[in-house]
């Protein structure tokens, strides 16, 4: 196991992503941050907090569970549903989806389907902490914390204080992905 990002790296990456989001969308007006549970959810909270800090106005992040839209449901035993909590109407807003690791793109595809049934955003952007390649769909991230070229047999693990009860870190482990 090798650690590729520690707590400081993660914090710095999120700060950079926050600024890029504000820059791209001029300000926080009309932006809805939606994390994909569980770790994307946590990252979205942190980005929202940073935006609030920078902009001085309260901004709330929501969460969007995509389980029911997945195309790989039949490959595993049924999964419990996670929280969906969309704080406001998303029509004509810019939705920034937040996830921890981007790989095949299938989760994001499911998220786009889920979004389309909640409303019609003006634009959807994607922020990820780690992009490790191996895309199976034509999807790319707008904001990337770290590009991490990996082999398919490796496993990228993101651990966060709130969800994993350890220090924040991103590591690469051997073994089937």
């Amino acid at each position: 196991m090798s650690i590729v990002m520690d707590a400081t790296d993660i914090s710095r990456a999120l700060t950079r992503i926050t600024h890029e989001i504000l820059e791209r969308n001029r300000d926080a007006e009309g932006v809805v941050i939606l994390g994909i549970p569980t770790r994307g959810d946590e990252l979205a909270q942190r980005i929202a907090a940073k935006i609030t800090e920078v902009e001085g106005t309260e901004i709330r992040a929501g969460s969007l569970d995509v389980t029911l839209y997945r195309d790989d449901l039949r490959l595993k035993a049924p999964r419990a549903l996670l929280k969906t909590d969309v704080p406001e109407d998303i029509d004509d807003r810019v939705v920034v989806l937040v996830d921890d690791v981007l790989m095949s793109g299938r989760t994001i595809r499911a998220a786009l389907d889920a979004l389309s049934e909640l409303g019609r955003p003006r634009a959807v952007q994607l922020a990820v902490l780690v992009d490790r390649g191996h895309r199976e769909l034509p999807i790319r991230a707008d904001f990337v914390g770290k590009n991490l070229p990996t082999s398919k047999s490796e496993r990228v693990r993101v651990r966060l204080r709130e969800t994993d009860d350890t220090e924040d870190q991103v590591s690469i482990e051997e073994g089937a992905a």
């Binding site: 029911l68 449901l73 039949r74 595993k76 049924p78």
Partner: peptide, 11 residues
């Protein structure tokens, strides 16, 4: 959903 949403026992 919980009966059919994942792989069934047969699958």
């Amino acid at each position: 959903y919980l009966l059919l949403g994942g792989a069934t026992e047969e699958e």
